[in-house]
Design a protein around this nucleic acid. Structure first.
Length: 957
RNA sequence: GCCGGAGUGGCGGAAUUGGCAGACGCGGUGGAUUCAAAAUCCACUUCUGGAAACAGAGUGGGGGUUCAAGUCCCCCCUCCGGCACCA
């Protein structure tokens, strides 16, 4: 250190050290003063006169590696909005919590031998520390984790709500609604409802015929087992033996939504299909409503489309094809198919059933004696054991004739029944009528196996493809000939009705949701089994069923599911009394359900718990829930409660669909006040990073690349080989060594700089590359702001009277940032702050006061510090509770404006006119302009287009 | 294959309703300040030609509508995301 530096007083400069000092000091102040604590209705300090704003972040999964730069992107955006809304007089609910059950913690525990509870709690502490260091204005008093027994008690409670409910499709004028299962029992008892298995339940595969009657005594005459079996077919949460996605590597079954291209979403391990007895949710009952209610939601279209496609509604017909016996006579049995093209029935030249279809089993018994069954059983066995990956690998059609024949009701001709894995058991009836003339898949199959092809729609002139799927007149179709596709369908529906062979039917691609996992780190089911294997619900007052500690959670990698909780024998084996199960003798031995709930369970309803997180009597008090989730009756088409939900697009179908489903059930049962959870959804874009690619597209870690060109014309080379590599943007990943740790950035620049940088990178919704070099620009902005408001000796730097245009510029800044925040356009709002700071030399106390209020949502720590330094003597609390400054619209318009004048669409000159100048004034001013006059001299002015306030265009030649 | 979204300077991006393309930032060049450097400040910075004034070109490519197109229409290319034998 030199002498001069030692004697000079320290200059007040905004740098990393000052940033750190300011930030940690204000964070402590906020915590101490409960600045962001938002009271609930009825609590002291609650102001009922203010409107509410519920802004939700997708809560993070607390991983051991800490916060990723992608997390604070969405959180900063919502923080700006929440701070802005508070300043605009809203009661703002801004909570944070932890999505803490799930596979990664358990996998990590297996590797390290440390209990997942310990590692998860540590990860949570680290996440909390990191999030607080960003200065996010969360109401931390509402924090919880999904692993807290006080939370998952209610997750289990909601499960029981679904277990004790059924879906009445006739309710609400046909829209359908969940109702308590006791009401179904009452209707069975009174004879009001026909006693039979749920006709919409596909899962029942039990043996023997169950009753189907309407007699008043039908229900009471049944034995207990039968009654329970019937009820189970109606429950929204039910146990079912069916073919599920089994992932041997993860040691658990997975939901359809968790399987991508035949591999597990997590880990990318192969998934097999396996018949297992699992807990399912009857989400299919809600298919129509889940689809219908997407409409009014303010969600990205891509997300709505993805959900709609996942639900996959299609309209068509179910048709029965009579099965023929060995002599070619109608046997009495029939094969039911689903088709969207009943108009093509005359072209159905064969049938195909899925390998799992019951008819395949039947065929082995009743097929004509000369049928070679060994080929059939070999094919079926192979298809069943194939992993989905293998099934999808080859699109080459395979199949076997199953030895049976049906009658095509349209042509009256016998046609063969085949089985092939291109027909899926899980969709429609698992059987199709094959119309090769109008369906490319059927065409390929027919070609391969030499089956007849009959076109029933005339293809257009010059058509040289295989199957023709477009519109056109019917041919070879008897009474349909000449009709276009739509009319032919209508005519066919009428005919099928007359013949009583089929009817209209809507089908969905959506399947019921497989909800049980064979892992340890999840919520236990509140279910026990008695000695006969019958399941019983744990009563509500015995909740939560706590996850037992386990010393050994090493999974058994096997082809058979072996739930880990099975190892907790002392917990599993209990009595009805100890488990809290009614309806059984308290001493009766029972066995607890050893499956656990999937990671999605906790995130299905966490937004509701935030409304009232410490409530021990209900998942949230009705008052708190209806206040925060209030749909604001009177606003048309508003269905959801959360005003803004921000999170990644990767949850478009999984979490967002599951949460909507639970919410709708709770709504039907009268537990919540809105039919949808999230009114407005927004996906922040992925933050990528630069990465380097060799000519063969392989990637090179970022630290093995050097720039041998200039900064302006960079030339990246791989250090080791000298090979020229190409800069691309890629996901941050450890292997590319291009991961950025937020802690490092905060240490170097401070949290305010970090926040501004991420918001300035580009539009919130776009994916953007992280570029460390750019961060300094935002740090400089804060330095400029500091210098604008603070002298080098640290005293406030204030002008006595407004300088130049500063007042006008301030009004514009207020208007621009306000509207930009409303439309989530933070990059342009920050650009406006830059412009203001670049243009303004000095502010008065009053102007600085308003400017700091505009700055505070973006850079809250600098905001607070300047607010306290520039304000009248003594502390005046937090800028977070100051009001957003007003602006005067008249200050936004200039007295004079510069208007471009074009000749033939090219700007040739500019004229300065009064702001309100009308078309005549503009036209004459433009024509009088010297440059313009020169350019049009000797030409004929054909037309002058004048847009007042914008431009003048002269058409002359 | 089908359904979304995108393509703008060396880089990130702006242009909100068809009306001045490139705001703002990064990087770069030159200058001021300094013993020197950092920091800061000022000027320039789409490309081509030109000392300059200025001229021409220009929003992935091709065509069109219009007085006027990054924006609207048609065709094509590339990239990203989703779905994928769903009858």
């Amino acid at each position: 250190m030199t002498d001069t530096q030692a004697t000079d007083p320290p200059k007040s400069r905004y740098d990393a050290r000052l940033a750190d000092e300011i930030e940690t000091r204000w964070q402590a102040w906020w915590e101490e003063h409960g600045t962001f604590r938002q009271p609930n209705p009825g609590e002291p300090g609650f102001d009922p006169s203010r409107p509410k704003y519920y802004c939700l972040d997708m809560f993070p999964y607390p991983s051991g590696s800490g916060l990723h730069v992608g997390h604070p992107e969405g959180y900063t955006a919502t923080d700006i909005i929440c701070r802005y809304k508070r300043m605009n007089g809203f009661n703002v609910l801004r909570p944070m919590g932890w999505d803490a059950f799930g596979l990664p913690a358990e996998q990590y525990a297996i590797q390290t031998g440390v209990h997942p509870e310990i590692t998860t709690r540590e990860a949570i502490d680290n996440f909390r520390r990191q999030l607080k260091r960003f200065g996010f204005s969360y109401d931390w008093s509402r924090e919880f984790g999904t692993i807290d027994p006080g939370y998952y008690k209610w997750t289990q409670w909601i499960f029981l709500k679904l277990y004790h409910a059924w879906f009445d499709p006739e309710a609400e004028g046909g829209a359908g609604r969940a109702r308590p299962i006791e009401e179904l029992v009452e209707e069975f008892e009174s004879g009001e409802r026909r006693v039979r298995l749920n006709p919409n339940a596909a899962e029942y595969t039990g043996a023997g015929d169950l009753p189907d009657g309407t007699d008043a005594g039908a229900w009471s005459s049944l034995d207990r087992e039968t009654r329970l079996a019937i009820l189970d077919s109606y429950r929204l949460a039910y146990l079912s033996q069916q073919t599920v996605n089994w992932c041997p590597k993860l040691g658990t079954a997975l939901a359809n939504e968790e399987v991508i291209d035949g591999r597990s979403e997590r880990g990318g391990f192969p998934v097999l299909r396996k018949p297992l007895r699992q807990w399912m949710f009857r989400i299919t009952a809600y298919a129509e409503r889940l689809l219908e209610d997407l409409g009014p939601l303010d969600w990205p279209n891509s997300t709505k489309t993805q959900q709609a496609e996942w639900i996959g509604r299609s309209e068509g017909a179910e048709i029965d094809f009579p099965l023929l016996d060995a002599d070619g006579n109608i046997s009495g049995e029939s094969l039911r198919v689903f088709t969207t093209r009943p108009d093509t029935m005359f072209g159905a030249t064969y049938m195909v059933v899925a390998p799992e279809h019951p008819l395949v089993e039947l065929a082995q018994d009743i097929a004509p004696a000369d049928t070679d069954l060994s080929v059939l059983s070999a094919y079926v066995g192979e298809a069943r054991n194939k992993a989905d990956v293998e099934r999808q690998e080859s699109k080459e059609k395979t199949g076997v004739f199953i030895g049976l024949t049906v009658k095509n009701p349209a042509t009256g001709e016998p046609i063969p029944v085949w089985t092939s894995d291109y027909v899926l058991m899980g969709y429609g009836t698992g059987a199709i009528m094959a119309v090769p003339g109008q369906d490319q898949r059927d065409w390929e199959f027919a070609e391969k196996f030499g089956l007849p092809i009959v076109r029933t729609v005339r293809p257009p002139e010059g058509f040289d493809g295989d199957a023709y799927t477009g519109d056109g007149p019917a041919i070879n179709s008897g009474f349909l000939d000449g009709l276009d596709v739509e009319r032919a369908k209508q005519r066919m529906f009428e005919w099928m009705g007359d013949q009583q062979i089929g009817a209209k039917r809507v089908n969905y691609r959506l399947r019921d949701w497989l909800f049980s996992r064979q892992r340890y780190w999840g919520e236990p089911f509140p279910i026990v089994f008695d000695e006969r294997g019958q399941h019983h619900a744990v009563s509500e007052d015995a909740l939560p069923v706590e996850l037992p500690p386990l010393a050994d959670y090493q999974p058994v990698e096997s082809d058979e599911p072996t739930p880990l909780l099975g190892k907790a024998t002392g917990w599993v084996q209990t009595t009805a009394g100890r488990a809290g199960v009614g309806g059984l003798d308290p001493g009766a031995p029972v066995r607890r359900e050893t499956n656990t709930m999937p990671g999605w369970a906790g995130s299905c309803w966490y937004y509701l718990r935030y409304c009232d997180p410490h409530n021990e009597d209900r998942f949230a008090s009705r008052e708190a829930e209806s206040y925060w989730m209030d749909r604001r009756v009177g606003i048309p088409d508003r269905l959801g409660g959360v005003d803004l939900y921000v999170g990644g697009a990767e949850h478009a179908v999984l979490h967002l669909l599951y949460a909507r489903f639970w919410h709708k059930v709770l709504y039907d049962l009268g537990e919540v006040t809105t039919p949808e959870p999230f009114q407005k959804m927004f996906h922040q874009g992925l933050i990528t990073s630069f990465a380097y690619q060799r000519a063969d597209r392989s990637l090179v870690p970022i630290d093995q690349v050097e720039n041998r060109g200039s900064d302006e014309k960079p030339e990246h080379h791989e250090i080791e080989t000298g090979e020229r590599v190409h800069q691309i943007t890629a996901k941050m990943s450890k292997s590319l060594k291009n991961v950025v740790n937020p802690d490092d950035v905060i240490a170097e620049y401070g949290a305010d700089t970090f926040r501004l940088y991420e918001m300035y990178m580009g539009p919130l919704e776009s994916s953007k590359p992280w570029n460390t070099r750019d961060i300094v620009g935002l740090h400089r902005l804060l330095q400029k702001i500091w210098r604008l408001c603070v002298n080098e000796d640290g005293s406030p730097r204030l002008a006595g009277s407004p300088r130049g245009e500063s007042e006008k510029r301030l009004h514009r800044l207020i208007a621009k940032t306000g509207s930009d925040i409303e439309r989530l356009s933070f990059n342009t709002a920050i650009a406006a702050i830059y412009e203001f700071v670049n243009e303004v030399s000095e502010l008065t106390e009053d102007q600085a006061d308003r400017f700091v209020r505009v700055l505070a949502p973006f850079a809250p720590h600098v905001g607070e510090e300047l607010w306290s330094r520039l304000g009248p003597g003594g502390t005046r609390g937090s800028v977070s509770h100051a009001s957003w400054p007003d602006h005067d619209p008249s200050m936004l318009v200039d007295d004079e404006v510069e208007i471009p004048v074009q000749v033939m669409g090219k700007v040739r000159s500019r004229i300065t006119v009064a702001a309100g100048a009308d078309a005549t004034v503009l036209e004459s001013a433009a024509l009088a302009d010297q440059k313009i006059a020169e350019l049009i001299e000797g030409k004929t002015v054909r037309k002058v287009v004048v847009v007042p306030g914008k431009m003048v265009n002269i058409v002359a030649n």
